[in-house]
Nucleic acid binder design. Sequence first.
DNA 1: GATAAATGAATGAACGTTCATTTAAATTTA
DNA 2: TAAATTTAAATGAACGTTCATTCATTTATC
Lengths: 193, 193
Amino acid sequence: MDEVKPDKREAILQATLQLVAEHGFHDAPCSLIAERAGVAAGTIYRYFENKDVLILELYRELETKINSALLDGYSLDKPFRERFIHLVTGLLNFFILHPKEFKYIEQFHNSPYGVAFRRDRIMGQSEDCGIYVELFKQGIAQQVLKDLPLAVLCDLAFGPTVSVARNHILGVVQLDDNLISQIAAACWDSMKR
Amino acid sequence: MDEVKPDKREAILQATLQLVAEHGFHDAPCSLIAERAGVAAGTIYRYFENKDVLILELYRELETKINSALLDGYSLDKPFRERFIHLVTGLLNFFILHPKEFKYIEQFHNSPYGVAFRRDRIMGQSEDCGIYVELFKQGIAQQVLKDLPLAVLCDLAFGPTVSVARNHILGVVQLDDNLISQIAAACWDSMKR
DNA sequence: GATAAATGAATGAACGTTCATTTAAATTTA
DNA sequence: TAAATTTAAATGAACGTTCATTCATTTATC
């Protein structure tokens, strides 16, 4: 009978995710977060030191969720192209399946939180980006990919991916499996030698 | 002797551009804008109905500035590839030359202002995007470009462009003329049949 | 009955905006 | 031209609101 844990922490995180995804960081005040989480305002501070910590923690949880989704079925034994397509389609599918998470991440990246975060990430660029960086490094070394800076290869790969996900979520385009694989192939075309 | 126009309106716009580019919409309060513009807080409301109007008007001015920069040297007589490369390199060069303008536009797009703005833009998709849309439509009709939705082609073209500009401005990569033309070519590769 | 969890009214800081007042410029009058 | 008068521009203290955060009190758990 550990099913009936109210788990207010999770409720607060979910409420934050929803409100920020819907309205942005503006108009996602603690009072509303508390209300939607079915919790009093003060309760938030029992689980999170302050709002900044709450927002950062939520971001980190989403990031690891995405990473484990991408790693699912990812094999270093498969050829470059297949591995690359796996990552792009995986990312697109995740975003389509989790539009709120996508919107939250976009909001985060374009906020004071996100800017500071990126700077740190760039300094010690490790952990998560590891999958991509490793793939791209090998691709360059084996002359499968264009000899461009790693950051530029990332932009070629994920710039369109993120952009297309945004347009799908906004309803500008309707992505399906066929279109997704065409887009992934197009990204590959831009990177391959 | 019409040199000595103080032009407070322009000073307010410049101060807004700088502050939003530096700190985001957060931490760009009217009090600071006024201070940096060398103007009293109340003066802002002599030139702009309210802060929203100020922010929107600045965005529109930046947009037309970019568009005229892109149109410079753009000829409908040149072949597809050349026209496309012109647009992408033109956009990249503008962003590199005007990092504050780039940051402001990014902030704007990822704010409540920008979301509402995009919806309107999509409905009556006209005016500015005309250059791209026309180019892409023709490209598809003449089987030079992949037969993908226009929005997706835009994402393939400008997703990496914007992403790479951001990385340059953040100092992650150092773009030069050579690298820029390589990137533009890569984008073309992703779109061409 | 003791400890932990949860509450929500109260607090103070920060914000956009207003407006009574001052300063400057333009126009009229002498 | 100089003074007087009118009009516009600019000011910044004050206002109402919103927000994150606190804490004395209540409720639940063991």
